[in-house]
Design a protein around this nucleic acid. Structure first.
Length: 535
DNA sequence: TATATGCCTG
DNA sequence: CAGGCATATA
């Protein structure tokens, strides 16, 4: 097992709870220093450059007390986890995760049973109480305030699984609680409650859009008004918690994407083309709707470049001049099951943009579409495409070990079957493999060249190592690689260098120690990569 | 034993 | 990058 107990738990925990754990983790780091290497090498140490004695197993054993405490805390948190994310993971790769989902449901069921709700409104009231109880946890990353499972209500497969295969396969064993199976009526009730809650929330969100329309229209002025206070949003790791709060300025961002899902299909192609002269109030994609105008103003040149590259991917243009029709993860859910094809209706070509926007403001239509969008399981792509691969590679600049929750958020336009999940996991495994091979290669090379001080080993944008990595993950070189990645690469390189110079590579599993360090250096993937309504 | 992960290979 | 195998873990 590569991962430390923390990392193992990390995969099992709901994202919001993991955010809390990160907080704990960071607090501990503040007290004890970061990873051994970070402390010794980056923050400076008086030790001899090539022999950092406290680096290695000793440190891990010293930290084991911390880790045990952490694991206990995480266990507690896991017990009180938000139901939304639990169900979200119910279809995940591991049986354990599915059991988590079942437990979450059982918990929910238990709550329901205590009062044996007779009416929908009563259930709703109960849900509110339940939600209030867990929202403090959920709000950490500004996840929707719905404690019920979105996934379970949208994905029939997930629903059936998280409900313990209650109706479809009652005889199937799976360690699910019996009372779940024996009360299909309650499952039905819960489904009703889910639908009701969903409809309510969507309605509220859509209504809020109308109230916010003046805000959207003044986005142009916002752009010219200089950097917004959120300019620190895109910095990495250390400001992660704060950033998460800022990146989701208000509840409206959730609704915005809902509103534009359908109109996106109807936009003329040039509407999607990234253009420097485009009016800021026109969103480039659903993801950027309502946020993008603000964000554009808060970015410096480098992040604009990231953004452009990203939009390019979304729009289906590519560095190799591939046809735009290759677009797949342009964040639009199609109801056909055709993969990798343009999703725009031909009859709207040439339609004025404002007319498209007006259409999107057709409230009853939108509301209907939203609910339909949420509840329809046919809206997902069935396979990963080259654009998904490109996106995954760019994600690697931020996270080397993405959690399943992050993967779900970033690849929300694909149906997360077991196969898709393992393919994505395999991709990142391959990315890491290449990354670590390069690191080892360059570390050995440096050693052979007689480097004497690890501090001489740096990774800059001009370095050969970075070029090799950039060539692999960002071939078109149209994505501004975050500085944090360079830092992580430098730390990795030094880890390899020190380990090799100390002869640790004689141990067959010597790299695992390094992996443990590096996996803690993951940053949050920028919101542009994610869907912003649900986890 | 089932599942997850890493390593090797084409 | 994906497939296959070996190993580790629960």
């Amino acid at each position: 097992m590569l991962y430390s107990p923390l990392i193992t738990l990390k995969w099992l925990l709901p994202c919001s709870c993991r955010a809390f754990c990160r907080l704990i983790h960071r607090t501990e780091n503040t007290l004890s220093g970061s990873s051994p290497m970070e402390y010794n090498l980056i923050r400076g140490s008086a030790r001899a450059p090539l022999s950092p004695p406290s680096y290695g197993r000793q440190d891990w054993s010293l930290n084991s007390g911390h880790q045990a405490k952490r694991a206990r805390v995480e266990n507690i948190i896991k017990g009180i986890t938000c139901t939304d994310v639990m169900s979200d993971q119910s279809e995940e790769t591991g049986g354990m995760q599915r059991e988590e989902g079942a437990e979450g449901l059982a918990l929910h069921q238990k709550h329901m049973e205590t009062r044996e709700p007779e009416s929908l409104s009563e259930s709703h009231q109960h849900l509110r109480g339940f939600r209030a109880k867990f929202n403090p946890l959920c709000e950490d990353e500004r996840f929707p305030r719905w404690s019920i499972s979105f996934e379970a209500s949208t994905d029939e497969e997930a629903l059936s699984k998280s409900c313990g295969e209650s109706e479809s396969s009652p005889g199937k064993k799976g360690g699910k609680p019996d009372h779940v199976n024996s009360k299909p009526g309650r499952v039905k009730l819960m489904a009703d409650v889910l639908k009701y809650e969903l409809t309510q929330a969507v309605s509220r969100s859509v209504d809020s859009i109308f109230k916010s329309m003046p805000l959207i229209q003044t986005a142009a002025e916002t752009e010219n008004s200089g950097p917004a206070p959120q300019s620190a949003v895109r910095t990495e790791n250390k400001s992660r918690c704060g950033a998460a709060a800022i990146q989701f300025p208000d509840v409206q961002t959730e609704a915005m994407s809902l509103v534009v899902q359908k109109p996106e299909l109807e936009r003329p192609p040039n509407f999607l083309l990234p253009s420097s002269s485009a009016a800021p109030l026109i969103p480039n994609s659903p993801v950027f709707f309502s946020r993008e105008p603000e964000r554009a103003s808060e970015r410096n040149n480098s992040t604009d470049r990231e953004c452009h590259a990203f939009r390019c991917l979304q729009d289906g243009c590519s560095e190799g001049g591939e046809p735009r029709s290759d677009t797949c993860w342009n964040l639009v859910k199609v109801k056909s099951k055709v993969n990798s094809r343009p999703l725009r209706s031909p009859h709207t070509h040439g339609m004025p943009v404002d007319q498209v926007i007006l259409e999107s403001l057709h409230l009853p239509h939108v509301k209907l579409e939203c609910v339909d969008f949420f509840l329809n399981t046919d809206v997902f792509q069935e396979c990963l495409t080259t654009n998904h691969l490109k996106k995954a590679k760019l994600m690697f600049f931020y996270t080397r070990y993405p959690s399943s929750v992050v993967l779900r958020m970033c690849f929300h336009d694909v149906q997360f079957t077991r196969c898709i999940t393992s393919q994505l996991i395999k991709w990142f495994s391959n990315f890491r493999e290449f990354y670590y091979i390069q690191m080892e290669k360059f570390a050995r090379s440096a050693l052979l060249q007689g480097a004497v001080d690890v501090r001489d080993l740096t990774v800059g944008r001009e370095s050969e190592l970075f070029r090799a990595l950039n060539m692999h993950y960002n071939k078109a070189n149209d994505f501004q690689v975050p500085d944090r990645f360079l830092e992580v690469a430098e730390i990795t390189l030094r880890e390899f260098y020190v380990a090799i110079s100390m002869g640790k590579d004689r141990d067959p599993s010597w790299k695992k120690t390094i992996y443990k360090v590096i996996c803690k250096l993951d940053s949050d993937v920028p919101p542009e990569f994610k869907r912003h309504h649900f986890g």
